[in-house]
Design a protein around this nucleic acid. Sequence first.
DNA 1: TTAGGGTTAG
Length: 508
Amino acid sequence: MKTKSPTFSVTTASQLHDAIDRLLPLLRADAYHVPAARALAAAAASLPSSNLLLSNRLLHLLSSQSASLPDALSLLSSIPNPDRCSYNTLIAALSRSQRHLPSARALFDRMPQRDHFSWSTIVSAYSRHGQPLDALALYRRMHEDPENAGADNEFTASSALASATAARCARAGRELHCHVARKGIGADDAVMWSALADMYAKCGRVDDARKVFDGMPVRDVVSWTAMVERYFDAGRVEEGFMLFLHMLGPAGVRPNEFTYAGVLRACAELAVESLGRQVHGRMLKSSIGDSCFAESALLHMYSKCGDMGSVECVFEQMTKPDLVSWTAMICGYAQNGQPEEALHYFDMFLRSGIRPDHVTFVGVLSACAHAGLVEKGLEVFHLIKDEYGIQHTADHYACVIDLLSRSGQFERAEEMINKMPVKPNKFLWASLLGGCRIHKNVCLARRAAEALFEIEPENPATYVTLANIYTSVGLFDEVEGVRGIMESKGIRKVPASSWEKSACVSGC
DNA sequence: TTAGGGTTAG
């Protein structure tokens, strides 16, 4: 049930301000209110007197939804003397989507003068849309331009730090650290410090990140969550959990849905259900219990632990499962050897009206492969592009190769590999190897093994997998060759990587 | 009146 758009009687500037205040949160939440925003803009145009502040507020309103973005651009071109705020508002709105980034940049280049809002917006836009080196170049350009010498502040600097992080460039990050310390930028700003610690951690320097974290004059829940997460990412699980406990106890910081989701992800990776269950209990006692975001992490944790009963319980209590929740259900059942349940959830999901994405289809195709539903899987594979307009990913191809090779249809599998427009990934070759093991296809096993070796020549798991595969298809000379390399490299026993498990699931 | 850090599912 939609909230009806309010109607406004606007004859004065004051009434227009009030109307914008009321409509802005509604429009941000739902594009349904776009016609009301357009009506308000039309009413504003007929007011006898207006000012730039009002025009800028209207620009902000119209640019809060992509559907009314053209109206905002049209309004900008009708303002006689737009100021920096007018341009900044539109640059921020355009740069929300990658598709409009060139337009945002064109407006940025075209505006007569830029300020710290303009620079932080454009730097973070390039960083977010996968061009962090361009973002850093822009930040440097800001410093080189005497006109913008005073524009640097905690917003521009933290955007630049996030760019160094995205580029995994510790050198640029370290330079930025020196720069902000020397200039005293953001000394009391939690965002600035958090960005700095995260830069070190994501550049592989977790201990440096911890030093920054320990020395922070101000910390908030994001700083804590990020530091805990970085320990998990680095495989330093115990330190991650210790810091999480410190956060709950002595520090007295209240975790939010991101904190819980991160800790649950670590529990899922380690498959420690007892710990995950405790975290779940804590969530229920807090107000986070009904966060869809954190609940999806719960679904994932329980399904990684193989506890589909608890998965069902959590899912049934969710008030409004979203795309990620449904996908977690489909993938969870597919991975736990219950493909029929996975496909049942996919049917229910389609009836919910939410559009599936590329990850959903990985779960569906995986379920078809596990259930041996070759034709159904191929039908779904074609639907992905033809019905939903989603480009096939290497993972979709890997699932279909899994499907075909398990059923011994190697000619079709090879034909698909030779024609696929994306580069085959290690999961594809591992899936093919699994099928080769079942059907003793020595020739294709050799091709798949060599391709796998090319992708990950330095991964010890590659050698272990290759030795196993060669053994199972009877290529004993190759087994000896691989074992020789393993001995020379000192490789004995390594934990199975995800793709190695995938090959084993397919083949054993 | 406009900007920044952590972000669940394969």
